[in-house]
Design a protein around this nucleic acid. Structure first.
Lengths: 245, 245
DNA sequence: AAGTGGTCTAGACCACCCC
DNA sequence: GGGTGGTCTAGACCACTTC
């Protein structure tokens, strides 16, 4: 099932076998495009087409202007589970890290207000963070918190779980959340943070969180490198978890 | 926020405005790549890069060797909801259609057996169907049913809801389902059915369904055109729905 | 300074679709 | 048969990273 025997498919096949066969290891850099085009006696354009196609499969990824690398196994992620990012990654025997990109307090844009279902354009804290797995930046998150509900939160340590902070400092627990998953292109600031070229594919997840009183307290925009994750949902598990809160 | 002012970004900007501004309507064909490369005084490669980038955004899609078309609005899809495909599409004021691609009865492959959690490689019915929205093929589905649980099902009308058949003919209701969402490349037979080029991006959803006795009765592999859908999940709603069954 | 990917030119042939 | 996108050649310059 290798498809028509084009140059493209041959190149893809060779590289795919090297990855699946373990000749190339996760996060290892592939040869440069020029080197590959020599080795396969073809042009950079054809090589780039082959690499882009393997990227779509989720086998490799690129760091802008650095090169192409082998994708590590995907992380299983359940957006309904209130498990913290660091805990979730640790449970999958991987290493998590979080860095704050920037923080600001502004009036909600119309986009934010819409998601938060607030027609009065409240003041919000925007917290933008980058999350790493095994040293690789895979997730850009923007949290948008209604500021009056979270006095003083910007003075806290924001590299850990916000959900944890919500609970400990403010007594909010998430009774319910609603989210959308959309395959789309990375906006420019996201692409820059993740080290991908603008306009490349990401998996966008928009989430709205409700507290125990069914009040929307924040929303979140996640942008995942598409090869890094598989969204996993179990209706049963989630209902148990939700009702346990 | 138009990015660096490259030729690429200019072309993308012009076409994007025509789409957002309603000059180009959903499902309308764009000019051919050659025509566009004339109009923008550039080469087909650059035009193709621009179009591919807009495709990643979800603004346009392609039909293999036919051309590029404007994407209609995305359908909201909740894989946990047991709502039937046709009903779901109708509720969103769109027109649904289903065609059977082929049907076969075979021994489960190791992939299927694994998902079905059956180490004995049972005989399964594979039902492959193509689903259309407003006349456009957007979803390829392969259902894999454990054949001993569904005697005679292949004689039924398979262009409607399988879930409906499960209930009416066999008394099975789905108490629980578990699914994975994965951005990946279209396998060859899927690409061919959907009319996309092999190796292009799709959103793959693998689902396992349990009946009221917590027995796995079938699994399903869905391949969506990535611009056609947004996965929407509400923890609250789902719990209500699940418990209502 | 050397090397990388990102962008771009100016062509070509082929497989397939539609008329 | 004419037009479409899919694939491919053989180069080029630029922005950025790495050393």
């Amino acid at each position: 099932m290798a498809g028509r025997s084009t140059q493209l498919n041959k190149i893809k096949g060779v590289i795919r076998e090297q990855i699946v066969g373990g000749v190339l290891l996760p996060q290892q850099k592939l040869s440069s495009e020029r080197e590959l085009s020599d080795r396969f006696s073809t042009t950079r354009i054809t090589i780039k087409d082959a690499l882009t196609s393997l990227e779509t499969e989720g086998l490799i990824y690129r760091e802008e202007r650095k090169g192409w690398f082998v994708s590590p196994p995907r992380i299983h992620y359940n957006p309904l589970s209130r498990s913290h990012f660091h805990q979730m990654i640790r449970e999958q025997q991987r290493i998590a890290e979080t860095k704050v990109v920037n923080v600001e307090t502004v009036l909600a844009t119309s986009d934010h207000a819409k998601v938060l279902e607030r027609s009065d354009f409240p003041t919000v804290h925007l917290i933008r963070r980058l999350r790493y797995i095994d040293g690789r930046a895979v997730l850009f998150v923007e949290n948008c918190l209604i500021s009056e509900l979270f006095p003083g939160i910007l003075q806290e340590n924001l590299t850990t779980s916000l959900t944890g902070l919500y609970k400990e400092k403010y007594g909010y627990t998430t009774s319910r959340s609603r989210f959308d998953v959309i395959p789309t292109a990375a906006p420019e600031h996201v692409a820059k943070s993740l080290g991908i070229a603008a306009g490349q594919q990401v998996l966008k997840i928009c989430r709205v969180n409700y507290n125990q009183d069914e009040v929307i307290i924040d929303c979140e925009f996640e942008y995942w490198r598409p090869d890094s994750v598989v969204i996993t949902i179990d209706s049963c598990e989630d209902c148990e978890k939700t009702s346990a809160y």
